[in-house]
């Protein structure tokens, strides 16, 4: 069974754990860098990206997260998680983990009163998916090897770059686990590749 971690420093950790378990995999809440070694994949949840980044630095998570990515293990970031994965963040000189070949803009749909939910198609995942956007970022530009999976009003809101999956919205806030299933599929594929 695939073992999937959820970075548990802050944010919607419990919801992702529920989604992973509902999809039939084992979920682990990750609070210390050493825990990453035993995992096949990692979800970085929604929350406050600034706060998560401070805690990542405080507990020296950064080298372990980068190494996790170097090993080819899949990572999935939702909302704040997407910001942490992106190689470029608009208005900032440095990215955070900086592994997914996209440029993101923070709070790009406005403040909380402008937060919304919308039904959209996600390529290869769902014809209609209820996406909950909360002070959400969006992908301003994607590298050439990045596959755009979903757009909302012309803006990229979900994409896959090889082992990395990211979305602006919060699949963990609905009972629709198809995007989590898709990620677990990525994890199983990567695991089989490593075993061969």
């Amino acid at each position: 069974m695939a073992k999937i971690g959820v970075l548990g420093l802050q944010g919607a950790v419990r919801e992702h754990v529920c989604a992973i378990e509902a999809s039939g995999s084992e979920a682990v809440i990750v609070k210390h860098p050493e825990q990453l070694e035993a995992l096949d994949g990692l979800i970085i949840p929604g929350g406050e990206s600034t706060t998560m980044r401070k805690l990542i630095d405080k507990y020296q998570f950064m080298p372990a997260l980068k190494q996790f990515a170097d090993q080819g293990k899949p990572m999935f970031g939702t909302c704040a998680g997407l910001i942490l994965l992106a190689k470029r963040v608009e208005g900032y000189d440095e990215p955070h983990i900086g592994v997914m070949d996209v440029t993101v803009e923070r709070n790009s749909f406005g403040r909380q009163r402008e937060s919304f939910e919308a039904d959209l198609p996600i390529d290869g995942v769902a014809e209609e998916f209820t996406a909950v956007f909360i002070r959400a970022p969006h992908i301003v530009a994607a590298g050439e090897n990045v596959k755009v999976l979903a757009k909302h009003e012309g803006r990229i809101v979900a994409a896959r770059d090889g082992q990395f999956l990211g979305c602006s919205f919060h699949p963990e806030l609905t009972d629709d686990h198809r995007l989590t299933d898709y990620f677990i599929g990525m994890v199983k594929e990567a695991r089989e590749k490593n075993l061969v």
């Binding site: 944010g11 419990r14 929604g46 406050e48 919304f116 939910e117």
Partner: peptide, 20 residues
């Protein structure tokens, strides 16, 4: 597209979990 739904409003607080 809907703003101000329960999911959007409660979800915002969910994102604050574990924080100060």
């Amino acid at each position: 597209m809907k703003t101000g739904t329960d999911r959007v409003k409660r979800g915002m607080a969910e994102m604050q979990k574990g924080g100060v």
